[in-house]
Design a protein around this nucleic acid. Structure first.
Lengths: 332, 332
DNA sequence: CTGTTAGCGCTTTCAT
DNA sequence: ATGAAAGCGCTAACAG
């Protein structure tokens, strides 16, 4: 049998489509008798309102799309969980799609916001240029999470990456390291900020970077190993390495250890994110904890405001507090 | 300014809405002149067809929803990537949403299929009962991936979990282990199959399980540590432990090592999935590789058939070949 | 090749 | 409290 419609329900219940619709939408202006008849017909016909028809009429979908380079990142999945929980409270469904960092694919997904497939967009790791995000956010509801482009129109939520990198580098220095290296990721906006924090901490202590290496492609365990191998093959050898993520730090620890050096006695290693990798590593990683779940919640609040408010909406960025987690991979 | 419609485009281009629609949908029956005029108007007005109106008319959305307990699993994200790539070729967009294993949340998302928000559904780790999946798949387009419920109506893609567990347990036995333990997960359908394979391999060799432990809640690194601790506190001690996932195996290796025992000399450890965790572990894990990306592609083919074919569609399940990966965590 | 028109299924006035 | 009817934006069938 074909899908039931309001018409069918109305006929079966012996009322008008208007009444059916009112019951569906919980309008108070319906008699208990009608309500019961409609409820019965709905059950009997196994009726569900068709989303596209409802969306067309209401001019909104109650759906939100999140875009991320990959779904694998613990920070992203945790932030998205926080976002989704907050969204659910307001009746929104949140979906996520990976872009693989591919601009074309990202554009295709962003078009879902442009063509009204979704009411709002969350961008975790945009491939598009800052100016394009700016233009998009000028007209539609967009919020940036974790990675924030400079933008007048879009709102973003993250930690203060520069400060966090400053904090953890200061920790490295305060525990006696003097020859500091960094393995970073300039491809990510947050990566540049972490580099800044690293440099600033060194400058404070009148030190200069012993080595600075940046990933070309992926920023993962293998990249961490490869870059560390490169780093260890050059003089001067560092006595501490700050890595832009825990996964990279895990690769780093592995190579340092395989080279017959001890962590942290010979070389201290610091990560970033406080993901499960930090605990799986031996020794466990000193790292920066991001309040990812809470960041997601805050991001939804901002997006909701953007979606519902008529005129002005929140702009700029919101920084949530991070925390230095000291473990065995650094002295101290 | 308000959103432009086909009407606006038609007026601006000086043609009828029919012509605009034909251009939009690439109909060949349009003169080059009209096509150019419409294209110009579309650009000028920055027009995008409204998804809900188009979906309503066409009675399909070209969207597919995938449901998973969490997005964090390497197997799931890789399988979803394969699925998404295949879907994109056919013009479908695939989105994914986490359920956290919560039945109510899963139902809410499944309703997106029922109400036509999406054309098809992929289930990675269903919380709902097999009978409910059966009923759902009887009417709508559903495919199961990795975790497959027994079902007449739904199609599913996975590896042969029982055979894979049999293979890896045989490897453990063939490399000299005689007192085998397992840390498994009865909550997952695949977990039970892996247990069966484990038991069968032991039976073949006239052995019986030394210990069998099952996770209560999460099946993760911490659970792996906890269960291994429990396992090591009891006699008799095993000389090999088969874990239902690499992450759990990593926790297992950690506890065995911390207890002053050597892997694999005192206790061999085997994982499952060949995720990056298997390589991050020291020693690296012997494990089972799943062709996750390819599984996703096959799943899409099946779902597409289900969505487009009129009558009968593929049923049952498709098993893709797994592979035993031998590394340092087992003797051999 | 093009214009006109009838709905897709739903919500929401406007009467009553 | 309820019914009738308009119309959201689009596609497709029909006429020309």
């Amino acid at each position: 049998m074909a899908r039931a419609t309001v018409q069918d329900v109305a006929k079966t219940a012996g009322v008008s489509v208007g009444t059916v619709s009112r019951v569906l939408n919980g309008s108070p202006a319906v008699s208990a008798a009608s309500k019961a008849k409609v409820a019965g017909a709905i059950r009997k016909l196994n009726y569900r309102p068709l989303a596209s028809a409802r969306d067309l009429r209401r001019d909104r979908t109650m759906r939100i799309l999140a875009l991320a380079k990959n779904l694998n990142s613990p920070i992203i999945s945790e932030a998205f969980r926080g976002f989704g929980d907050a969204a659910a409270v307001s009746g929104y469904v949140s979906l996520i799609a990976p872009t693989s960092g591919d601009l074309e694919r990202e554009q295709q997904l962003v078009n879902m916001l442009r063509n009204g497939s979704v009411d709002g967009l969350v961008m975790f790791s945009p491939a598009m240029a800052d100016a394009d995000i700016e233009a998009l956010a000028g007209q539609l509801s967009v919020v940036q999470l974790c990675e924030i482009a400079e933008s007048e129109s879009a709102f973003g939520v993250s930690i203060d990456d520069r400060q966090a990198a400053l904090d953890i580098t200061r920790h490295l220095i305060s525990t006696g390291s003097r020859r500091l290296a960094m393995i970073g990721n300039r491809a990510a906006r947050s990566g540049s900020l972490r580099e800044e924090g690293f440099r600033r901490a060194l400058a404070e202590a009148d030190l200069s970077p012993t080595q600075l290496l940046f990933a070309e492609g992926e920023f993962d365990f293998h990249a961490g190993r490869r870059l560390t191998r490169e780093l260890l093959s050059r003089a001067p050898l560092p006595d501490a390495i700050f890595c832009g993520s825990d996964t990279v730090a895990a690769g780093c620890v592995r190579e340092v250890t395989d080279a017959g050096l001890r962590v942290p006695e010979d070389i201290a290693v610091a990560g970033f994110d406080d993901s499960i990798q930090a605990e799986m590593c031996v020794p466990e990683l000193t790292t920066i904890r991001q309040p990812a779940y809470e960041m997601g919640r805050v991001a939804f609040d901002a997006l909701l405001a953007r979606m519902t408010e008529r005129g002005e909406h929140r702009r700029g960025r919101s920084f949530l507090p991070h925390k230095l987690i000291v473990r065995g991979s650094t002295k101290g």
